[in-house]
Nucleic acid binder design. Structure first.
Lengths: 122, 122
DNA sequence: GCTATAATTAACTAAGTAGTTAATTAACTA
DNA sequence: TAGTTAATTAACTACTTAGTTAATTATAGC
């Protein structure tokens, strides 16, 4: 049994599942709606399994309505993952700052129109 | 070959690797520094493999200094994952709002000191 | 050159994951 | 009740992952 965060991240570590979440972010959808874009590449049971992974990770909720299974996205699990990432924000902002600082040494700010011959001004 | 985002998320889907990132968020560390908390549970080659996963995902950078391999955290890959998550923020904020709204129906706002007997005021 | 330390590589195993096809369940519809 | 649609379950295969132990590489220091 995996911890919750590992389960969330490993559910997100698949492009098919992320595409399903993207579709669900536009509104509820049945299994067959979600399956449609992938049926050339994989079978319906494969889709069922992907949805089960998302459901176990708490990323979606599946309900029943006659023979359909409307699914909807569930924000909480995503929030937990996002909160975990948040503690590292300083690292990507700092590396952005370094990139920005570097770019300033290569191309001076406000070099007039365009950047052609900009270095001449240094 | 996996896409970049899948590689990032699957690297994050392991508590040992997340703990290593947590350690690296306090500053650079060698392989053996990173290994120390885990050597009761797993061998050094297992650690090497975890670090390789993090490195391939671009989450850390490993350099060389004599026989040591100082590692440092690399913000960019984390930023890409965080940027992906950002598009779903509305879903977790909305579910937080629903929770908040619900709580207001159960416990009224400003119920005086403490919440004991608060419902009497409804 | 010998020895200790740091880390990796090789070869292997056990368990988990992603997919398949065939069969089954469940609900609606004529 | 027979047929159709929606989805799942079962049983299986191929591949990947996470770990192991034993051997190896590379550097430092005496």
């Amino acid at each position: 049994m995996q911890d919750t965060l590992s389960q969330t991240f490993s559910a997100l570590a698949d492009p098919t599942r992320r595409a399903m979440l993207a579709k669900l972010s536009k509104g509820e959808a049945n299994v067959s709606d979600l399956a449609k874009p992938f049926l050339k590449e994989m079978s319906l049971p494969a889709i069922t399994k992907h949805l089960k992974v998302l459901e176990k990770a708490g990323l979606i909720t599946k309900t029943r309505s006659a023979q359909w299974r409307p699914c909807k996205i569930n924000g909480i699990a995503l929030k937990n993952a996002a909160d975990w990432m948040e503690q590292y924000r300083v690292f990507w902002e700092e590396s952005f700052d370094r990139l920005e600082a570097y770019l300033k040494t290569v191309v001076p700010r406000k070099p007039g129109k365009g950047t052609k011959n900009a270095r001449k001004k240094i």
